[in-house]
Design a protein around this nucleic acid. Structure first.
Lengths: 189, 189
DNA sequence: CGCCGAGTTGAACTGAATCAAGAAACGTGG
DNA sequence: CCACGTTTCTTGATTCAGTTCAACTCGGCG
């Protein structure tokens, strides 16, 4: 978890060694292989999970088709939040897109961190603030731009996505079918 | 702010009187009249704002049309979060749908609360957790259900919406035009 | 009474979905 | 390193949900 401490310090987030240790010692390292299913739809996500290495996606099934809702990379949180927070079955699956190294805290351990120091609330707040803003941006983009505009924006802002991830997942992430994305790409080139 | 303390206690959220006072004394009461614009697009939202009485909506303008993204009611937070958190111009306008009573903390005061006690991080975390889950539900609904299904669900889950709010706002909130909503309603009845 | 905003309805249009089939790229084992 | 099967991507034809533009009704309110 040392990477995360560096991360917080770099972001100028105040944290004492003692508080940090309370949090860090609850985190457990875990590895996954490419294509592993890290969480299955219907299961309760018991872990707040951060990515040290690799990439993953969250997706749900709609009429036998996979709809990707989020990509997660290095130093981002990978949790199926509604499941984790509400202790309810996850609507999403989580799949490793590459080999991965993860660190995770169990829900119960996190509750203890919340009780015994304020570092949990701080990290929890900052984490969810950033993914909420990410979701707001996606919503705004979806409601105000055409699929073609969204594609161009994604190309510009996250070109690495296109190296790493099959177009079919990018398509459903954009809210369109792979066929529609293919046609957009042809139109542009 | 007494209502909010009751609210936290009812939710079994641990908070000492001292910590509560640190937070509560930073909050300022403010009233608005129906149709008042509480925040304009382009302004930076300086306040974390909770609703004691009344209702409001957040909306943005797309090609001269208003697209509503969220309704906010009693005991919910009304902030334009991306603006508030990133200190950036708001993409959204906030409009009072009824006469309102609000309580708000200024951004700078909140930073001080974050520094001097853990109540800020706790309240901040819980607040944003709940609106994030709300947004996840909306996204899921949007991606997996037809407009008609979403309408029926909304009728069932939030029938009060239809008493209080013009259909044209509900339509854009659902991601469709008022005309399309009108046709759905006819088809159903 | 006349006006204005909300809601409804119609007709034409459109972006994207769907279904289906072929081409290209990938990876796995011999 | 090649051959094969599988997955990904592309392309075409058709269909459909929802948009757009425009006209009309209804109800409240100055």
């Amino acid at each position: 978890m040392e990477f995360m401490k560096q991360f917080l310090i770099a972001k100028n987030i105040p944290i004492t060694d003692e508080n940090w240790n309370i949090f860090a010692e609850k985190n457990i390292r875990r590895e996954y292989k490419k294509k592993d299913i890290i969480l299955k739809e219907g299961e309760i996500d018991d872990y707040l999970t951060i990515v040290e290495e690799g990439a993953a996606r969250l997706f749900f099934i709609k009429q036998n088709k996979e709809i990707t809702t989020r990509f997660v990379f290095k130093y981002q949180y990978l949790t199926s939040y509604d499941s984790f927070l509400n202790r309810s079955p996850s609507r999403c699956n989580v799949e490793a897109l590459t080999d991965m190294v993860l660190w995770r805290v169990h829900y119960d351990d996190l509750q203890e961190v919340y009780r015994t120091s304020n570092v949990g609330n701080l990290i929890g707040r900052l984490t969810i603030e950033s993914i909420y803003v990410e979701k707001l941006n996606k919503e705004f983009s979806y409601l105000s731009e055409s699929a073609e505009e969204r594609y161009l924006k994604l190309m510009k802002e996250q070109p690495d996505l296109f190296q790493l991830i099959p177009l079919k997942h990018i398509a459903t992430y954009m809210g369109i079918t792979p066929q529609a994305l293919s046609r957009i790409r042809r139109r542009i080139s």
